[in-house]
Amino acid sequence: MNKKLPGTFIEKKQPDDSRRDFLKQSALLSGLSITPSIALKAANEHWDEKLAAAIEKTSLQLEINGVQQSLSVEPRVTLLDLLREQLNLTGTKKGCDYGQCGACTVHVNGKRILSCLTLAVMQDGQKVTTIEGLADGETLHPMQEAFIKHDGFQCGYCTPGQIMSAVACIREGHAESEDEIREYMSGNICRCGAYPNIVNAISEVKKGGKKV
């Protein structure tokens, strides 16, 4: 994979190493912006990484989909980005990062929250359930079954958030009528517009009376 191309300056290494390599080498290459000598010195002595290790990260215990995880994260990392970028649990979706679309809905201790508006460190010690943890092994959750049966999606991107929200909607007692479902599901946008089918799916699960 190593090759000589203009502007190519990094060998395949761990991310933390590569930046230092970049800083060192970039002074020799005119390909990228000039790096000031102070930064070069800092890089050579690994100031930034030491600093990051010392103060930027904090330890965190989370039970995710029934598995206890000991993690070390920067405090600015959202629960959403922790799930997607560090734990490769990409079933939880990013649709806006502003808490306006619901695609990132997960359960914390069984209640729905927007993981994009939640810093991971705020949930220390809590139980997180994502769409990957909703089914019972190979047996789908009744809400997942109902979404398939009623075609409660098209592209599928908002679907994990819709399903997590739908389960919570019933648990909260907010699925007593179709109008109530529409009201309490309105934080979950489906741009494909499968709304009536989602409402049908939730109504059916609610009427089925199974514990969700």
Partner: peptide, 28 residues
């Protein structure tokens, strides 16, 4: 009115979209 062939992947979070492929050495 057959159910979608990719329905299960979409309701379980298994469907992978363009920003969801974990590759070694991935940067952002």
């Amino acid at each position: 009115p057959m159910n979608r062939v990719d329905g299960r992947m979409k309701v379980t979070g298994a469907a992978k979209y363009s920003a969801e492929y974990a590759l070694p050495g991935l940067v952002h």
